[in-house]
């Protein structure tokens, strides 16, 4: 089990300000897909003085997620919105007497919930608008721009170097794919610009992720012709539905929530990618989502360009990182 500080334990076992705040006028709902955590922050803000009078939270997550949420409410109560916005995720971690490195993203989630709640209070919609692209490494709060800069400025060509320079990937390493994608992309740009020896450039998939503590997802068995079941007697092919199953029993269809959520995430990811594609005179729209297959329409310079397959795999990677499970991106024709 994790090595939690006394303060974390105290705030986990007896969280302060847990529950629903009916009269909230500033609500932030955020999640960290890497760990499956989610947090709803509710605050009551004085509309005249901007002072946060009350704050409550609800959290789905592990011990440190709950403790971080509770710590956040304690930190913001009594502050003005402006003061509260100066808080960082490190302040939350410090308040708790520190968090294990792999759990730092719990404090980042608290930070984001606060940003989202303030945006809600001000009548804005909050998106994860890290100026230079989404956070790649949740553990250490490193965004794409920072990784790109570090790679360029220091001629980095390995994941280990990126981790050493930026910390990204130094925790849970669930960001391995995204990190690898950025490194390969920037290295390819550098080769094209003639500033990097092609032999040195990082190649996707060239690292043994085992050595980096990351387990690759096992590949599915190759599709093979369907063979009849045969007579393996002891195996039943279907079970009678067990009595008293709950609505989320795996045998019954899962509720729409996860699917909806997924589609929303995909839309969001594609929206984030569009500015980049447009900068290259291309574009991409979402056509349909079917299970784990995402159909997109590429247009402009993306069509027929040599880079089309690179673009598709880039989108695929980006989506998979967002959803947290493998996604297949299939480009469809004009109509």
């Amino acid at each position: 089990m994790w090595d939690y500080s006394e303060k974390v334990q105290e705030y986990f076992f007896n969280p302060k300000n847990a529950g629903v705040l009916a009269e909230a006028n500033a609500v932030g709902e955020v999640g960290a897909i890497s760990c499956g955590d989610a947090l709803k922050l509710m605050m009551k803000v004085d509309p005249v003085t901007n002072v946060i009078l009350e704050a409550k939270f609800q959290t789905f997550g592990c011990g440190s997620a709950i403790a971080s949420s509770s710590a956040l409410t304690e930190l913001v109560i009594g502050k003005t919105i402006e003061e509260a916005l100066k808080l960082t995720n490190q302040d939350i971690a410090d308040f708790l007497g520190g968090l294990p490195p792999e759990k730092m993203h719990c404090s980042v989630m608290g930070y984001e919930a606060l940003q989202a709640a303030v945006a809600n209070f001000r009548g804005e919609t909050w998106t994860d608008d890290h100026e230079e692209g989404a956070l790649i490494c949740k553990c250490f709060g490193v965004d794409e721009g920072m990784v790109e800069r570090a790679v360029r400025m220091n001629n980095l060509t390995t994941i280990e170097q990126v981790t050493a320079y930026t910390k990204a990937g130094g925790g849970c390493l669930t960001c391995f794919d995204a990190l690898e994608g950025v490194l390969a992309k920037v290295n390819a740009e550098m080769v094209a610009e003639g500033v990097l020896d092609p032999a040195k450039a990082y190649k996707l998939g060239s690292v043994d992720p085992l050595a980096l503590k990351k387990k690759p997802t096992p590949k599915a068995a190759a599709p093979a012709p369907v063979v009849s079941l045969g007579e393996i007697a002891p195996v039943r092919t279907s079970h009678p539905a067990p009595a008293g199953v709950s609505p989320l029993d795996p045998a019954t269809p899962t509720p729409a929530l996860t699917n909806l959520q997924k589609i929303r995430l995909i839309e969001q990811a594609i929206e984030e990618l569009r500015p980049n594609l447009r900068a290259d005179n291309g574009d991409c729209e979402l056509v349909d989502v079917d299970g784990s297959t995402v159909y997109v329409r590429l247009s402009g310079a993306c069509v027929g360009c040599q880079m089309a397959s690179v673009t598709v795999s880039g989108i695929q990677q980006r989506l998979a990182a967002k959803i947290g499970s493998p996604i297949r991106v299939v480009p469809v024709g004009k109509n």
């Binding site: 709902e29 999640g31 960290a32 989610a38 709803k40 609800q58 789905f60």
Partner: peptide, 22 residues
């Protein structure tokens, strides 16, 4: 469960809760 934003009560479907996943 009272701490959970997904919890809507015994034997209920999950609460409509769609956080922004960052």
């Amino acid at each position: 469960r009272t701490l959970s934003p997904f919890w809507a009560g015994a034997n209920e479907a999950p609460k409509e809760f769609k956080p922004v996943y960052a």
